[in-house]
Design a protein around this nucleic acid. Structure first.
Lengths: 293, 293
DNA sequence: ATCATTTGTTCCGTTTAACGGAACAAGAGC
DNA sequence: GCTCTTGTTCCGTTAAACGGAACAAATGAT
């Protein structure tokens, strides 16, 4: 990794931890790890000892091998439950899947990475369905999930995206031309949702609507996906209406504020907690945050 | 934390990461963190920078605050899915809950910690039910979950447990006397399951049977819990039979080997994959490990 | 509007932990 | 028996971690 003299103890310890969370092998030896990280066994041994003392890594005294500790798994669960949108969305996703009979997903946007990830899903009850790539970073420019976010990004941020990323054609239906893409994004903004066919996965239709955080920025979106065979052009608006309603509900419950253009485009629930004054919104809960998780 | 001169950069960085995964606040500032860890702000700033560079922590450029990164959540999910018993057990738990109409749980044992934790649950369909403490370390000496493990631990390990831990009475029905407890454990070993009432949670009945790893050691157990009102003495054996069958199935599918005394105590499934020779077992899969996770 | 206090951040001389090579004990395979 | 492997310990050298002070920017109170 470095010719010489480039140490960085804490970063490497974190890299080792990450490795143990993702590596194909459940358990691994000191020398093997030292090999992959290009350090002396003695060094790796010290790093592992620190991880063991912090109870993040388990050391089998018999075989001498190292693996992730159950405690780390416990912490991992806590981390997952920390995402406010996640917990809230789950219930609404169930309902959406119920209404549409198609797979409903939550996509979360990472502003630093400029990518999206599916973090929750309720699968379609129908036998033929796509199983989506959960917890994998996906690009913004291909597929409804990404486009619904890209369209509602602040001007400057979208500009930054176009400057940094190039529009790889993932399938033959991916929009790789910026001018064309800009037009599509305009339409998405007007409609309030994105609908794409086979831009990322051949044969897969996606319909997505954005959800907003308390700061007014897009933080992710709600998506349904279905096989192209089951999709008829006429059905788009009906599906989209369900998806948007679901996304709006999540936004509201999150204490999020949608952009002015979308205000009142959908009336709130008649059942359940009702806002007395049409203009007032539930105030953001203290523990709800705008960025990061 | 230390009077002077006690540094440990890598361990502290791990502690900070752990803190960010568990702390009540979703986002936090440099000086606040420096305060809780008793370091200079400049030091904490350096630590956080390392965590940010590793993409485990998110830094909001506007507010300057730090929080867990979505990437960490992604890794966390991967870590959770790494536990082999977890994935396997889920399906069997669903079936057990279906058969008994009670809440079914998976408990995983940590040998180093000498404690047990619920990591998966399928809830009873009935309205009155206990919601169990998921992902919390629980003691071995109180309640069916712990006892079913304690009973099947190797002699030496159980001895070590008694030496280190003292038997706190959690409820008035907790067995705090070692002689009494030893007798109870003997009976559990003979029966193949543990059945307790209110030893850890007042009014809660637990019925648990151990599951074994490829090395032949207990790695956890399968449990059902139900309210005392719904429990009639006569039903114990019937429930226990279901629980043991579920636990045995998980053990087998894990490539685990039960102790000799339990061999053939329960015939394998008639439907589904069938072992041709009664004595042969499916050989452990390569990725299945014995300890650690 | 102005001052005072807060925030996160940078810099730097001193301190100390990280580094890797070599030597170690223990176990597996032949 | 030997040999190759494993994880581990030791130690002199070296570079990273440390905290205090000074910083700019944002916030809150006056």
């Amino acid at each position: 990794m470095s010719i010489q003299g480039n140490r960085n103890p804490v970063r490497r310890s974190l890299q080792v931890l990450r490795y143990l969370m993702t590596a194909p092998d459940q358990q691994i030896g000191v020398r093997a790890l030292a090999g992959t990280f290009k350090t002396a066994p003695s060094t790796m041994h010290r790093v592992l000892s620190a991880l063991v003392e912090e109870e993040l890594v388990h050391h089998d005294p018999e075989t001498g091998l190292y693996s992730l500790d159950l405690e780390m798994v416990r912490l991992a669960h806590l981390a997952v439950e920390r995402v406010p949108a996640q917990k809230i969305a789950m219930r609404h996703l169930r309902r959406l899947a119920d209404e549409t009979h198609e797979t409903a997903l939550l996509g979360l946007y990472d502003r630093t990475r400029q990518e999206v990830m599916f973090t929750a899903a309720v699968e379609s009850p129908q036998p033929l369905r796509y199983v989506n790539l959960m917890r994998t970073w996906l690009p913004l420019h291909a597929g409804a999930t990404g486009l619904a976010i890209l369209a509602f990004l602040p001007e400057a941020e979208r500009e930054a995206f176009f400057k940094k990323r190039k529009l790889n054609a993932i399938t033959d239906r991916t929009i790789a031309d910026r001018r064309k893409l800009t037009q599509v994004l305009d339409r998405i903004r007007r409609n309030g949702y994105a609908c794409t066919i086979g831009q990322r996965t051949p044969g897969a239709v996606g319909i997505a609507a954005p959800i907003f955080g308390p700061s007014g920025d897009v933080i992710g979106d709600i998506i349904i996906t279905l096989p192209e065979q089951r999709f008829e052009r006429g059905g788009e608006r009906a599906f989209a209406k369900f998806v948007m309603r679901c996304a709006n509900r999540v936004t509201h419950e999150l204490g999020g504020v949608p952009p002015a253009a979308m205000e009142g485009s959908d009336e709130p629930e008649t059942r359940g907690p009702r806002v007395l004054n049409g203009r007032s919104r539930p105030k953001p809960r203290a523990e709800t945050i705008s960025k990061g998780i």
